[in-house]
């Protein structure tokens, strides 16, 4: 049986990247779609005050206040991607730093950091997210902080396990025995090794971040109206689900497609990168 030709990229990687590129283009072009906040009281609502359906002017129709649903979706995707990228970078950076320090330096630092990690892993994410949301002002920063605060523990555990495995490897001990400082050994020998693992993990983390941001916003604990986000668009659209189901289906499909695209990228990397093969499909 002929195998996959060497160097050919797996379809999952291509498909995931294509979908993400399409969403990124939509997010960048969001201002071209119009204002997500300004209601069109003359043409955005029916004479009886109901949202209008899809038309040439409003390809996805309008919402309950007569605002362009496509513009709101584009801005909502922009929020989702911003949150996914920012919280992904922050949570992985914190997790990797915690895992590296705990795994390499051991001792009291390891005990403190890994018990904190255990607490982080044991937290029910939604409840904890709501608690943090209650003490922070609403907005994009709040969502990024919540997701970062809850999502760093899993990469920390991954990196910690990897460092425990690596620290007895000859080249790491050789680095120590040559008189390099602990930080130099971490920077030269351990960081490059765990970087590939974290790169492989990041699409899975981003997929979780997209879904969790939508959950928080749906529960009014993330991006609050009138600012659009995919979660609060689903929440708002529920009131019209019987006569304008597109108001729920469009943002719901966007969340699903974004999550799936990140997972496909992760899956595509899994077939190419041995580090990624160790990660489960859904990450957590």
């Amino acid at each position: 049986m002929a195998g996959r030709p060497a160097g050919r990229r797996p379809w999952q990687l291509l498909a995931g990247t294509a979908v993400l590129a399409a969403f990124a283009a939509l997010a960048v072009a969001a201002p071209l779609a119009g204002s997500p906040l300004r209601p069109d009281l003359t043409r955005g609502l029916t004479p009886t005050g109901l949202p209008v359906g899809p038309s040439a002017r409003y390809p996805l129709g309008t919402d309950l206040l007569g605002r362009d649903e496509l513009a709101r979706l584009a801005y909502g995707v922009r929020v989702s991607l911003t949150v996914a990228i920012a919280s992904n970078i922050a949570s992985i950076a914190i997790g990797a730093a915690v895992g590296l320090v705990a795994g390499f330096f051991r001792g009291p630092a390891e005990q403190v950091l890994m018990r904190l990690t255990d607490v982080g892993l044991a937290l029910p994410y939604t409840l904890a997210g709501l608690v943090i949301a209650a003490i922070m002002p609403a907005g994009l920063t709040r969502v990024i902080v919540i997701i970062t605060a809850l999502f760093w523990s899993y990469p920390a555990r991954l990196v910690y396990g990897e460092v425990l495995r690596l620290r007895r490897r000859g080249f790491v001990e050789a680095g120590e025995a040559m008189g390099a400082s602990g930080l130099a050994v971490v920077r030269r020998h351990l960081l490059p090794q765990v970087t590939s693992l974290m790169l492989a993990y990041s699409p899975l983390n981003a997929a979780s971040a997209v879904a969790f941001e939508a959950t928080l916003s749906y529960l009014n604990a993330g991006i609050n109206p009138p600012a659009p986000s995919l979660g609060n668009m689903i929440s708002d659209g529920q009131a019209a689900i019987t006569y304008r189901p597109l108001l729920v289906i469009a943002p719901g499909l966007a969340v699903m497609a974004l999550t799936l695209a990140f997972l496909l990228v992760g899956e595509g990397m899994k077939t190419r990168d041995p580090d990624a093969r160790r990660l489960s499909w859904l990450g957590r």
């Binding site: 080249f171 050789a174 020998h189 090794q193």
Partner: peptide, 8 residues
């Protein structure tokens, strides 16, 4: 095979 960092 173990004492030299494969990425360096």
């Amino acid at each position: 095979y173990d004492s030299l960092d494969p990425r360096m």
